[in-house]
């Protein structure tokens, strides 16, 4: 069993729903995003196009972040999900520096979305899970997977550009997509063996 995601870049329209869906799922403090979409331009006028690259934690099988973590706070599960044990994190940020995907963020502070106001009840409820001075990142929506649901970004994506499944099963949708469209991870050359694959780039 190895959880993996395939992102169809020809479908992605860069709307940012994944970013907000993730925020809503985790209640991340202001300024923290586990799920981002990079926008960039290719070509010159009049044939220029805008392109999108959604990035999140790549759940690498050989993660650079895990290697540099001195306390073992970062660990990898049998099913391929890379997690952070926040009780063990000392906030040294070696993992943030090491991650080649900008997938980790350090909680400099727990900020509210309405600065200058008391936190909203939503934030009060959700921010209990966040500890200032530690590093956070995408957990592949483990809490949802445990309830048999797909990750929030996969469900919410209006372009249906995200697929989620088991990479160890050659018959799974993700495996077939990767095989059919020669899916590749982002920055494959770094050898981190991510579990996020991109197709039709």
């Amino acid at each position: 069993m190895r959880h993996a995601m395939v992102i169809d870049l020809s479908r992605c329209v860069g709307c940012g729903t994944c970013t907000v869906a993730c925020r809503a799922e985790h209640g991340t403090p202001a300024g923290v995003s586990y799920n981002k979409v990079k926008k960039y331009e290719v070509g010159k006028y009049p044939t220029a196009k805008i392109k999108f690259l959604p990035i999140l934690c790549m759940h690498c099988q050989d993660p650079a972040c895990l290697k540099v973590c001195p306390t073992g706070a970062t660990y990898k599960r049998e099913d391929g999900i890379v997690l952070i044990d926040h009780d063990k994190c000392i906030g040294c940020r070696a993992c943030v520096v090491a991650c080649p995907y900008e997938s980790r963020q350090f909680l400099w502070d727990i900020r509210n979305y309405y600065p200058g106001h008391v936190p909203t009840p939503y934030e009060v409820l959700k921010q209990k899970d966040f500890e200032k001075g530690t590093v956070v990142k995408c957990n592949f929506c483990l809490q949802r997977l445990e309830e048999g649901q797909l990750p929030a970004c996969v469900v919410a994506c209006p372009a249906q550009a995200r697929y989620f499944g088991d990479l160890d099963d050659p018959e799974s949708e993700v495996s077939r997509l990767i095989a059919d469209y020669r899916g590749t991870p982002f920055r494959e050359e770094l050898g981190t063996q991510p579990s996020i694959y991109y197709v039709k780039g």
């Binding site: 290697k67 306390t71 706070a73 063990k88 000392i90 906030g91 940020r93 001075g133 530690t134």
Partner: peptide, 16 residues
């Protein structure tokens, strides 16, 4: 520089 300076000794138990 640590976010959690009082946990620094966890490096010893981390054994990574």
């Amino acid at each position: 520089d640590l976010g959690k300076p009082f946990r620094a000794l966890k490096i010893v138990t981390g054994k990574n």
